[in-house]
Design a binder for these strands. Structure first.
Length: 285
DNA sequence: CGCCAGGGTCTCG
DNA sequence: CGAGACCATGGC
């Protein structure tokens, strides 16, 4: 807590010609689960070890000075949104999703945080992933001005399965513990594998306990900048079937359909479709 | 209260 | 390879 002197000066981070950003959409879209929206509309949270308070107005971000560089990278302000939108599919669902989600950006997450969080995500609602993340941070992370850091692989590997279960993980505790051990012991080097081609990297990730095709694609998209990776969860599964006019299929058939029809930024399209599906579901009730 | 959730893994045909 | 059973938990 005392490591960071209070910084009251906020400097604007101007956007180049890369389009807008919406913090509300980006931080509520099921990519990250540890940000808090304040009453003044700003968001507080942690990027890596750094406490961050960030505010968006008129397409410009304001952030505490010591986190400016981190925020640029984390919020992917260099992603060419207008080019991505120009490559969006023209089907009605993708077009509607784009209309709803302009400014939603795929975040560059710290690799371990992303991998571990999505190991805990299986068969869990977004709200509960959030509560598990908070419990893990409180139990094993470090406190900062704006919340807790995400626990290191070593600190999780050193924990007991019971301590992880106490954070609400259920049967996922075993997998998280095993994967934390492999990462902490350098049996799996999260940084070294970043050099691998996407299909090879995917196969490598699939060797980790608790990582199947869906979680591997989340990690590829959110932590390794593979913007063509398409995680297919229950929501996207339903969306793809609807796109195929009710025609279902096996998981691999739907994956092939997504790869052929969602364009070069299929991961972005997927994220927009995910948000659209969840919003329209809430409206329906 | 019962349903469902950003699934993975193992077994069996 | 594809389909089914099972796994823990809590928001809604």
């Amino acid at each position: 807590m005392g490591a960071h002197p209070p910084v009251k000066t906020k400097i604007p981070i101007p956007l180049a010609a890369d389009g807008p950003i919406s913090l509300d959409l980006t931080l509520r879209s099921g990519q990250v689960f540890h940000w808090d929206r304040q009453e003044d509309g700003s968001w507080t949270g942690v990027i890596g070890e750094a406490p961050v308070r960030v505010f968006e107005k008129s397409g410009v971000l304001q952030v505490n000075r010591d986190a400016a560089a981190l925020a640029r990278t984390y919020f992917s302000l260099d992603h060419p949104l207008e080019e991505i939108y120009a490559q969006f599919p023209s089907d009605p669902m993708s077009a509607e999703a784009l209309g709803l989600c302009r400014g939603l950006r795929i975040i560059r997450q710290p690799r371990w945080e992303c991998l571990a969080t999505f190991i805990t995500s299986s068969m869990k609602q977004v709200a509960h992933i959030r509560s598990m993340s908070l419990a893990l941070r409180k139990a094993f992370g470090q406190p900062t001005k704006y919340g807790y850091t995400y626990p290191s692989p070593a600190s999780m590997a050193a924990a007991s399965e019971e301590a992880l279960r106490a954070c609400g993980l259920g049967y996922r505790a075993r997998n998280l513990l095993a994967t934390a051990g492999m990462v902490a012991g350098r049996e799996f080097d999260l940084d070294a594998v970043a050099e691998l081609e996407t299909p090879v990297l995917r196969e490598a990730l699939l060797k980790l306990p608790g990582v199947g095709v869906k979680v591997a694609n989340c990690v590829l998209l959110f932590a390794y900048e593979r913007l063509d990776a398409v995680p297919i969860d229950v929501w996207i599964h339903r969306v793809l079937i609807a796109m195929r006019r009710g025609r279902g299929g096996t998981a691999s058939q739907l994956a092939r359909y997504a790869r052929k029809n969602l364009g070069p930024y299929a991961g972005y399209v997927q994220q927009y479709l995910f948000h659209r599906a969840r919003v329209s579901s809430k409206m329906a009730q």
